[in-house]
């Protein structure tokens, strides 16, 4: 049986793992890890928890990638195509694009995230000159939120924190992530990150169910 703190650490790690994937291109070490034992075990763990379809798709792509001349570069081009060009070629990973009337950047979801971070004594790292409603930032924050529960003393406090996580997932993420993920599925000339996006959505739903129970 998982202890609450172990479970929290695992859940937080998974969000941070996703956050890393959406924050920037993978470096050589990270790519190595995916192709090594750690990566296999980690992905298998997710597969064993009801995500076998999504993980399987990802694993298949990773295998194909290993056969490429320059896998890191291929992944970097895939990352660019998926998230970094514009909404014509890419799926922009910002809540504002999906939630504001005009599809603009830096709209209310950004300001809401700024307020939320500020209220918790947090801020976006200056090196990351991105709006606060970037998916990676929101997932990073969610990981932090999950870890807050580790130090809580009472069941009541734990319960409250789980509520808070659920509400963040439901209101701040599930309000737009499905549209974002759907957009990634329509992109041309992509292979890896649309699969990651599918896995994220499936995991969010899984965690949502866990928190609702």
């Amino acid at each position: 049986m998982n202890s609450f703190s172990e479970l929290s650490e695992t859940r937080a790690s998974i969000y941070w793992w996703f956050s890393t994937l959406f924050a920037s291109e993978l470096n050589d070490e990270q790519l190595q890890a995916y192709c090594g034992e750690e990566g296999r075990d980690f992905l298998q763990g997710l597969a064993d928890n009801g995500l076998s379809e999504e993980v399987g798709a990802l694993q298949q792509v990773l295998q194909q990638l290993a056969a490429q001349d320059q896998p890191r570069l291929e992944l970097a081009a895939d990352f660019t195509q998926c998230f970094l060009v514009d909404q014509k070629s890419s799926a922009l990973p910002y809540a504002s694009v999906y939630l504001s009337d005009d599809g603009l950047l830096y709209q209310q979801p950004h300001l809401d995230m700024l307020d939320l971070l500020q209220s918790e004594g947090l801020a976006v790292n200056e090196g990351m000159n991105e709006p606060a409603d970037h998916l990676a930032i929101m997932l990073d924050y969610l990981g932090n939120l999950v870890m807050q529960g580790v130090n809580s003393s009472s069941d009541a406090e734990q319960g409250m924190l789980l509520e808070k996580q659920l509400s963040f997932i439901e209101q701040q993420l599930m309000s737009w992530v499905p549209a974002f993920v759907e957009r990634t599925q329509q992109l041309k000339q992509t292979f890896f990150y649309p699969k990651v996006a599918m896995l994220l959505l499936a995991y969010l739903r899984l965690d949502q169910t866990f928190l609702s129970d």
Binding site: T20, S24, Y34, E38, L122, V124, I137, D140
Partner: peptide, 12 residues
């Protein structure tokens, strides 16, 4: 197991 695949935090 995820550690080597997780980058530095985006928040401070």
């Amino acid at each position: 197991s995820a550690a080597s695949m997780v980058g530095p935090s985006l928040l401070v």
